[in-house]
Design a binder for these strands. Structure first.
Lengths: 204, 204
DNA sequence: CGTGAGTTTGACCAGTTGGTCAAATCCATC
DNA sequence: GATGGATTTGACCAACTGGTCAAACTCACG
C-alpha cells in the first residue's frame, strides 16, 4: 500500500483509474458479482497492482461510496428554504432527474446495494442521509403549513421524488425496452414537472 | 433429474421447497451473490439433491422467474377498459402497492435482475410485458382522449406507478431507516391515492 | 548517473463454488 | 416382502476468486 504522504502523480492517476473502473463494474454487477480481476482489466492494471492501492475489494467499494455519497445528496442540499416553495421543489425534481440521466452508474451502484439490504452502506446512509432528510422535511412541512403547497406526507413526498427519478436510471433497460426508439429522458422532465405541479399546487 | 412423467408426491413437495428457498436467497443476494449451498440449506435439502431436481443454478432461477412473472403482472391485467377510468387507475395503484407489501421478495428479485441489465430476464419481459403495456397504454390514451382523466404521457404514467409502488419493497431498508417506528405502508396508500387523484382529475 | 523509495507483476495459495457420479437408500407396486 | 425405479448423498473435481509475496522494474532527486 502506498505511504500516506501527499500522493504522487502516479498514485493520483491510478487511484482515480481504479475508482472509475470500480464504479463501472460494481454498478453493473453489484459487490458480490464484481471481481477484482474485472476491475483490474477495466482499469488497465494488474490485479496485484489494485491491491497495492487498496487493501481489499471491500476497501475499493467503501472508498467509492464515500466519494460518491456527497455528490449524490447535493441536489437535495440545494433546496433553499427561502426560495419559492413550488419552484424549489420542481427544481429539485429536475436536478435529481438530471442525475439519473448523467450518472446512471452511480444510481445503480446505490440501488444494487440498497435492494440487497445495504449491508455495506447502512452506516453511511444513516449518518449522512437521515439528518439531511429531517432538515428538508421541516422545510416542506413549513411550506405546507403556510399554504404555499398542498398538504401531503412530507417524507412520502421525498420518497416519491427519489423513486420517480431514480427509476429512469435503475430500470433503464426495462424503460428503454418498452419505449423503443423514443428516449425516455425526452418526455420525463415535462411529465414529472406536470405531476408535481398538479399534486402540489394549492387549491385556489 | 426426475423423469418428466406426472410428478410424484415427493417431486411436487421438493420442487416447491426449492423454489421457495430460491426466492428467499436470490431476492436477497441476486443471481451471482446466491449460492446453491445457501438455497439447499434454506430448503433443508442437500446440494446434489437440488441438482437432481434442477439441472443448474441458472435453471432454478429461470424456473422461478417464469413461475412468478405471471402473478407479478396480474394487477395490470385486471385494469378494465370498461370500468370507471379514475377508479380503475387508483385501484391498480393500490393493488400494485399491496404486492410490494405482501411480496417484497418477488419485487426485489426482479429489481436485482433489472438493475443489472436483466441478462436472464429480458426475453421473458419483452415477450410478456411489452404487449401487456401496449394494450393498457391504448386504454389509458382512450380515457385521456375522452376527457375522463387528465392528459399525460401514458407510458410515463405507468412507469410512475411501478416506480412509486415498487420503491416501498425494493428500497425497504432505506425507507424504514428514515421512517423510524412508523410503518411506511400506513400512510403510503393514502399518499398515492391523493397523488394520482390530484394528477389525473380533469380540470373542471 | 546512482540510489533508494515507489511501483509493478508472475507465481502462488487457500477457500469457495457450480456441478458430477457412483453407491446407497427409499418407496410404490405387485 | 421382493423388485425396480425414484430419491438422496458423501466424496470429489475443475474453475474461479480474493489475496499474498518476493523479486523485478521505474522514477524522482541529489
Amino acid at each position: 500500500m502506498p505511504k500516506d504522504r501527499s500522493p504522487t502523480r502516479i498514485q493520483k492517476k491510478n487511484r482515480a483509474a481504479i475508482l472509475e473502473a470500480a464504479l463501472e463494474v460494481f454498478s453493473a454487477h453489484g459487490f458480490r458479482g464484481a471481481t477484482v480481476d474485472q476491475i483490474a482489466t477495466q482499469a488497465g492494471l494488474s490485479k496485484p497492482n489494485l491491491l497495492y492501492y487498496f487493501p481489499s475489494k471491500e476497501a475499493m467499494f467503501t472508498a467509492l461510496l464515500s466519494e460518491l455519497l456527497d455528490t449524490w445528496l447535493d441536489p437535495m442540499r440545494e433546496i433553499n428554504a427561502q426560495g419559492d416553495p413550488m419552484e424549489e421543489i420542481l427544481a429539485y425534481v429536475q436536478r435529481k432527474l438530471q442525475m439519473s440521466r448523467d450518472f446512471p452508474r452511480e444510481s445503480r451502484l446505490f440501488a444494487n446495494e440498497i435492494v440487497q439490504g445495504a449491508p455495506r452502506m447502512l452506516d453511511a446512509l444513516s449518518r449522512d442521509l437521515r439528518d439531511l432528510l429531517e432538515e428538508k422535511e421541516q422545510v416542506l412541512a413549513g411550506w405546507m403549513a403556510a399554504g404555499k403547497i398542498n398538504q401531503t406526507h412530507p417524507k412520502h413526498l421525498v420518497f416519491s421524488i427519489w423513486a420517480l427519478t431514480q427509476h429512469y436510471a435503475d430500470f433503464d433497460v426495462q424503460v428503454r425496452m418498452l419505449m423503443g426508439d423514443e428516449d425516455p429522458f425526452d418526455a420525463a422532465p415535462e411529465f414529472l414537472d406536470t405531476l408535481y405541479r398538479r399534486m402540489l399546487t394549492p387549491k385556489s
